[in-house]
Structure formats: C-alpha cells, structure tokens
Design a protein around this nucleic acid. Sequence first.
DNA 1: CTGCTACTTGACAGATAGGCCAAATAGAAA
DNA 2: TTTCTATTTGGCCTATCTGTCAAGTAGCAG
Lengths: 97, 97
Amino acid sequence: MANRSMFTKQAKVLRVLAHESRLMIVDRLSRGECSVGDLRDIIGGDLSTISKHLALLRAHGIVEDRRERTTVYYRLLTPCVSNFFTCATQVLKERSR
Amino acid sequence: MANRSMFTKQAKVLRVLAHESRLMIVDRLSRGECSVGDLRDIIGGDLSTISKHLALLRAHGIVEDRRERTTVYYRLLTPCVSNFFTCATQVLKERSR
DNA sequence: CTGCTACTTGACAGATAGGCCAAATAGAAA
DNA sequence: TTTCTATTTGGCCTATCTGTCAAGTAGCAG
C-alpha cells in the first residue's frame, strides 16, 4: 500500500490543492456550485487565470462543470477535499505550540 | 476564519507536503525517528537532496532534528500530517468512482 | 593535527508553475 | 449574420522548485 507510485499520486493531489486561489475555489464550491465570474469576484485577478485553476482542478477530477446558456457553473466532485482544511489547520495549530 | 491569509498559510503547508520524497519522509518518520542516511536508503538519490527536503520540512516546523555523535536523527513534530495521507487517499478513491 | 563519517550549504542548470494579455470559442439575442 | 456575454486557450515572461556536484562543517578517533 505504501509504495512509491502511491506517494506520487498523493503528492499530485496535494500539489493541485496547494495554492491559495485553488483553496479558495474549493472552499467556495464546498458551499455550492457557482460560475467562473462569481469566483473571480471572490479571488480577483484575471478571469483567464481563474479559468486555468479550474481546468487544473477539473483535470484532476476534483471539480466538474456544467454550461447553462453562456454561463459555466462549477461544482465540487470530491467533497472530501474539505478535510484538507481541517488537516492543514491542525498542522498550523500543532506547530505553533 | 476563512480569510485570505488563512488560505495562504494552508497552501504553504500543503505545498511543503506535496512532494513524493517529502511524503515518503513523513511516512517513515510517522513510524519513529531515523537518520538522514536511513532516509536516503529508502528514497534514493543524492544525500544532499534528502537533506534539503528535511531542511524545508524543518523550516516549516514539521520535523525536528537531534544530533548524536556524527549522526543526525529526525523526528516528526506534527504527527497530524499523517492525516493528509487519509485525505489524499480518500480523494483518489472518491474521484475514481 | 589528520582523517573519517555523516550531513549541510552554495552554486547552478533544467523543469514547472503562475499570471497577464490577446485571440479564439460557445451560445443566445438582435 | 453580426453582436454581445461568458469563458477558454495560446503565447510569453518571470518566479520558484528540484536535483546534482562540489565544497564546507561537526563530532569523534587515532
């Protein structure tokens, strides 16, 4: 179970989530689906940048998109990614002691 | 609680763990302290590379070192990082459905 | 002091990642 | 068809990350 390719896969998942903007996206989507524009309003920066973060999350099976008229809505496919927030917070707390 | 600097900090923790070798180090240390040489035997590659991974983990308060004669032993300071393995595995499982 | 073992640090090259602008595309409306 | 809105994709440039080799350091033995 604890073989090398296992660690490689886990590292990839972590890598995808290890970014401020992508964490914000996941956090927002954990409270329900929303459009790319909505996410840009929260995160700021160029719309194309947000779109690329979403493409990365989608490529890793973490989010899914749905088009309605001209708007694209994204939603979380793996709600368990929210557990990473708990884990990360725990590490931050534990090391501050 | 869910402000920007919070996400930045969490992303940094994730970033540090988002590497195959560093995950292997954490996994090994979760089963007890060991030397840099021991870790190189598990991970392979240059000793200096292992040492740099350890320096990064140490800089982020995840591991601690202790010297005994000429050997340096590392140990996990935040055992809760092991939870990331559970989280990552869960995401891998969830998205494969 | 010299040498040996076990690491660490510095320098540097190659690989990745992140962000912005501009151009392309999809769907709906005029 | 042309236009408008919402989003994606392609370049491109800069910044950060990784790994390797070489040189430096720490502790101990001879």
